[in-house]
């Protein structure tokens, strides 16, 4: 199985290698020409990555009358678009649904994936290969081709138009990656650490919670980022399973700016820009947690 041969590698920025080794810190020197070139190229690339989104912001600020103008910047900046988009749509309720769905499914993924990944990494139980195969296969299915089945199922369950349905679905389709990544991380943590803890009277569950989990923090954070972003941006399931405005996520709400005869590009992009902000905030927030998780790991 692929999972066994692939060690934990997907980490977040500041992550140390799983064995806790860190690169030697070099003394700061004055900028060398090579560093200047590297920095210039990197800054240029960063700009290229941001420009499409800057263009979205600019479009969001265009008055409707200037949408078809082939100009770089509008003559007038319609800051009121952001107010209008909020007033003329259900963004508030959409945002609430999306937060619940993204937060809820992330939590559910962690609750379900951590024990499964931990056990799979530590115990050679029967059916382990089948389980790992199941996980890999799940990764290959996309909700787009399963929509009718999902709709039928949740209709029969009487769970259409429910935030919890979207939580379940988003969790299920992101579970595979989380299990995969966490199994790799748990495998890389020396088993002796846990055994010591278990001799100290902690059960396997306790050892997992107090010893292994903190060490696997970068893996957990990676799983969190993945699930959260995927659930935040999920569209087709939200569209199919939620047909009333009160239970529609942001991505579906934004869709309503694409009308039968017109597309309100400025509102569409204004809403999209609003939708990106919370994800950026999450990154800022979680960044600190990575660092503290790492320090905790290195102390032990």
């Amino acid at each position: 199985m692929a999972q066994q041969t692939i060690p934990a590698t997907v980490g977040t920025l500041e992550s140390a290698s799983p064995d806790g080794r860190r690169r030697p810190v070099r003394p700061r020197r004055a900028l060398r020409p090579r560093t200047v070139v590297v920095a210039a190229v990197a800054w240029l690339i960063a700009a290229v990555f941001l420009l499409p989104y800057l263009q979205m912001v600019i479009t969001a600020l265009r008055p409707a009358s200037e949408l078809r103008d082939a100009t770089y910047l509008p003559d007038h900046f319609a800051w009121s678009n952001f107010v209008d988009v909020w007033r003329e749509s259900n963004l508030g309720s959409n945002l609430r649904v999306t937060l619940l769905v993204a937060g809820g499914s992330t939590l559910l993924v962690l609750l379900v994936a951590i024990p499964a990944a931990y056990y799979t990494a530590r115990v050679k139980y029967r059916g382990r290969k089948v389980f790992l195969l199941l996980v890999l296969v799940t990764q290959m299915f996309q909700p787009t081709s399963l929509l009718v089945g999902l709709y039928r199922e949740f209709y029969q369950l009487g769970m259409l138009n429910s935030v919890w349905t979207l939580v379940l679905c988003n969790a299920a389709f992101n579970l595979a990656f989380a299990i995969w990544i966490l199994t790799a991380y748990f495998s890389a943590i020396p088993v002796q650490l846990e055994e010591a803890a278990m001799i100290d009277g902690l059960g396997r569950g306790g050892a997992l919670l107090r010893v292994t989990l903190p060490l696997a923090m970068p893996g957990v954070v990676t799983a969190v980022i993945f699930t959260f972003i995927a659930a935040w941006n999920e569209f087709v399931m939200g569209l199919t399973l939620s047909t009333v405005p009160e239970s529609q996520p942001l991505t579906v709400g934004i869709n309503s700016f694409i009308g039968n005869y017109t597309v309100q590009w400025n509102y569409l992009f204004a809403a999209s820009v609003i939708a990106i902000v919370p994800v950026v905030v999450l990154f800022a927030f979680i960044e600190r947690h990575v660092v503290s998780g790492l320090t905790a790991g290195s102390v032990k």
Binding site: Y119, T138, F141, L146, L168
Partner: peptide, 26 residues
């Protein structure tokens, strides 16, 4: 392994494999 991997398997079966069955049937 049941308590450890059970929830994961349950979630996959109910939300992914069930619709897969529907898809094949369709």
């Amino acid at each position: 392994p049941l308590p450890w991997i059970g929830p994961a398997v349950l979630l996959i079966v109910v939300v992914v494999l069930w619709p897969v069955y529907e898809m094949v049937r369709t």
